[in-house]
């Protein structure tokens, strides 16, 4: 009987000490449970260089984007290294919901009007819900309205092109994000040695150099062969600077146009021959 009593006393003490060891923070840690941790800021803007990123605007956010692409740097001092000739694009891009963004834009080169809709299908996350990628679908239309290009005198449909993209991105770590962009471009009318449909694979990457400065790169590899094509794959590198609601891009690319049809399928500059266009994007989110 005495043994039992000692045993019980010990048990009583043990229960006390056990409780005492149980740190309140550890206890809360256990109570916290598993949450879904979404990857934030895979990319900062809706564009990497020329192409779209997986990013969409949030509900009721309005983005005003001003982009410039100057002439070729190797055009020399007479053209002031390209700065004499600028292609300008203005656009307004609006978040209809957190996952759907629509935009309209206007390019000075070939006087192109464009419109797009973007839908974020999946978000990269860990924890309770585990998804390896962020995936966004993009559908865009562009209409050339200039008076002096190949199909300027043709009917309206001849001036229209469409682009469909599936943008697949992954933030690898807090510094490095990559994106793969399978692309399908359809041009209603093309020249004899061109294909109406072009399939391309876009590759993009962003590397943070500091908390607000990043290095961006983008490359579109065309899988469709064209007869006698003088066109090149679009390649671009850029520096991205972010301050509050602004994102600035300083870009160097062999593409002059900012319309998907034109830069993916009709880039004619040779990057390594110095046919490089200096340019910038300024984005402001309201």
């Amino acid at each position: 009987m005495k043994r039992i009593s000692i045993f019980l006393t010990l048990l009583c003490l043990a229960s006390l000490s056990l409780r005492a060891q149980n740190d309140l923070l550890d206890l809360l840690n256990e109570e916290q449970g598993e949450e879904t941790n979404f990857a934030t800021a895979t990319f900062k803007g809706q564009r990497l260089i020329n192409g779209h990123t997986v990013v969409t605007r949030k509900t009721a956010e309005l983005e005003f984007l001003i982009s410039h692409r100057f002439g070729r740097i190797n055009s020399g001092i007479k053209e002031f290294f390209g700065l004499d000739a600028a292609n300008v694009r203005f656009s307004l891009e609006y978040g209809l919901t957190d996952n759907i963004t629509a935009g309209i834009g206007r390019n000075s080169l070939e006087k192109v009007y464009d419109g797009f809709i973007k839908y974020n299908l999946m978000k990269q996350s860990t924890g309770k819900v585990n998804s390896p990628f962020t995936i966004t679908g993009l559908s865009s239309i562009a209409i050339r309205t200039a008076d002096n290009f190949d199909f300027a005198d043709d009917d309206f449909a001849s001036k229209v092109s469409y682009t469909q993209q599936i943008l697949i991105a992954r933030k690898l770590n807090d510094k490095f994000s990559v994106q793969l962009s399978p692309t399908f471009v359809h041009r209603n009318k093309v020249l004899e040695n061109q294909e109406n449909d072009i399939i391309a694979l876009g590759f993009g990457g962003r590397m943070k150099l500091s908390s607000r400065i990043a290095l961006n790169a983008e490359y579109f590899y065309r899988l469709t062969d064209e007869l006698n094509s003088n066109f090149k794959d679009a390649l671009g590198v850029g520096i991205e600077i972010e301050t509050g609601g602004h994102v600035f891009h300083i870009n160097f690319t062999n593409a002059r146009s900012m319309a998907e049809r034109a830069f993916i399928t009709e880039t004619n500059g040779d990057f390594f021959n110095g046919d490089i266009h200096f340019g910038f994007n300024i984005s402001r989110v309201f």
Binding site: L25, N29, E35, K58
Partner: peptide, 22 residues
């Protein structure tokens, strides 16, 4: 004891929330 996840803070502006976290 108090324990909270920083990402659970909600801002009126989502962009601000992104900057706050990143």
């Amino acid at each position: 004891a108090v324990d909270m996840l920083i990402k659970a803070f909600e801002f009126e502006k989502k962009l601000m929330q992104e900057h706050f976290n990143e």
